[in-house]
Design a protein around this nucleic acid. Structure first.
Lengths: 253, 253
DNA sequence: CCGAAATTCAAACGTTTGTTTGAACTGAAC
DNA sequence: GTTCAGTTCAAACAAACGTTTGAATTTCGG
């Protein structure tokens, strides 16, 4: 039987927990799952591989988490929720500080990136591995992963979009949505990297959190430039794509 | 036994091919695999689901392609190689046209995006589904997928990086590598989208190639702004991240 | 120190997976 | 019309999967 213990004042008091209690087992499973999920992906990671790496019994996952899918969600929630809460807290601090004036774009972007940076720097809290897992989860087609992400991400995204809308009043809402989407894309893809990085040479191999910091510091100015760029002329033929090609490029086949 | 037929003048002449010949079987398998891989991912798509959807025998995949992994590579190659060849061809046309002068950034970017745009517009050649599959493959941790992509992508990437380096002589090579990586990230993430799009509202749901065209036309100017932005000051404390936060945001915990 | 609850454990559950097998079938060349 | 390589087919393969079971063990309040 699975029990969650007696609740006192809203906080759950774990019961039956000695030197190697249930909490230690759960944490070892979460740590092992985090490392293996990021290395092989969700589908390709078996519960046997996780429990073996964690040094616990196979049945421990279903006992403590219910199912493999719930374990995956638990792995994400452990790091993601605090990071997003911190993001919103930073943003609100900036807004309170500035009074009625809108927060500048670069500061809003900093509020998005800093918590990720802190997480990448802190191996105790998962370090860069978790950020890679998060980037991978974004591209995973599994419905339960998409549902999870939209539920845990949408509120934060909406919060930041409102802030950006105030900072860029001349930018149509629709255009802002697109640009935010591009930002999330470059961010998650970059965080998921390390493997795809090898496609482009001259980029130092990943060697811990220090590298992720440099990465985000290069990414932020890049995205800021795109975010604050003037409106493109979507009406013109080709929208700057077809039209940009010379006549000699037109002859195909 | 599997034979490839007699070769005449370098081209393979298929043998034993009636109304429903071997070539038709291979194509039906490729089409079904393409649709299912993009919907469920590589690991979560079974050969039985593919062969059932294609209306062929289960053993057909191993007979014609060898294994599930080789089938996946065949699905990618069919669309990817022509697209990348076209990209390089467009770029070379621009370079020949301009003589010794470097090709402008926006035209180089157009040479990267146009072939993807054409593919998205053409349902006969896979349409937008394949682009989504490609975006997913980028984030897949499977080693054979990463090897495949680096082999089939690296030459094109290197080619375009040289072109960008000529167009942006003031930009350090290292910085250019990063920015190109960000571009590939935003592009692949955006192409893989449709699901993640729902995180940000106000974006019209995907309804075919016309939408992908609008998407790329918004993405290209966004990335162009980041690509041509001035060098960030990486020496300053925080690199524009920590420094951008006000004093009140500094107090954590 | 006892008893009940929480947790761990080895074993087995029933499916599903990718792949292989050998016979049946097909279609053209001789 | 016989031959034979190419292709299709139903069936079976061993292995791995997530999950369940019920007994053994640990834990701790009373």
């Amino acid at each position: 039987m699975r029990r969650s213990g007696t609740t006192v004042g809203g906080t759950v008091i774990p019961i039956g927990e000695g030197r190697n209690g249930a909490a230690a087992t759960k944490q070892r499973v979460l740590d092992a799952a985090e490392a293996l999920f990021v290395e092989h992906g969700f589908e390709a990671t078996s519960l046997r591989a996780i429990t073996t790496a964690a040094g616990v019994n196979l049945a421990a996952v279903n006992y403590h988490f219910g199912s493999k899918e719930e374990l995956f969600q638990a792995v994400l929630t452990r790091r993601l929720d605090p990071m997003n809460q911190r993001r919103v807290a930073l943003l609100e601090a900036l807004e309170d500080e500035g009074g009625d004036a809108p927060v500048p774009c670069d500061r809003i972007l900093a509020a998005m990136f800093l918590p990720a940076l802190e997480l990448a720097r802190d191996p105790e809290r998962g370090g860069a591995d978790f950020l890679r897992l998060l980037g991978r989860a974004y591209a995973d087609p599994a419905p339960f992963i998409r549902h999870f992400l939209s539920e845990h991400y949408a509120p934060m995204i909406a919060r930041f979009k409102d802030a950006f809308a105030r900072a860029l009043p001349q930018l149509p809402r629709r255009e802002l949505s697109w640009r935010l989407h591009f930002i999330m894309g470059a961010l998650s893809y970059t965080l998921a990297g390390t493997d795809a990085l090898k496609l482009i040479h001259e980029i130092a191999p990943a060697d811990g959190g220090a590298n992720d910091e440099l990465l985000l510091r290069r990414l932020a100015p890049f995205l800021l430039a795109g975010l604050t760029s003037p409106l493109p002329d979507l009406d013109e033929a080709g929208g700057g794509l077809d039209g940009a090609l010379g006549p000699s490029a037109g002859e195909r086949r």
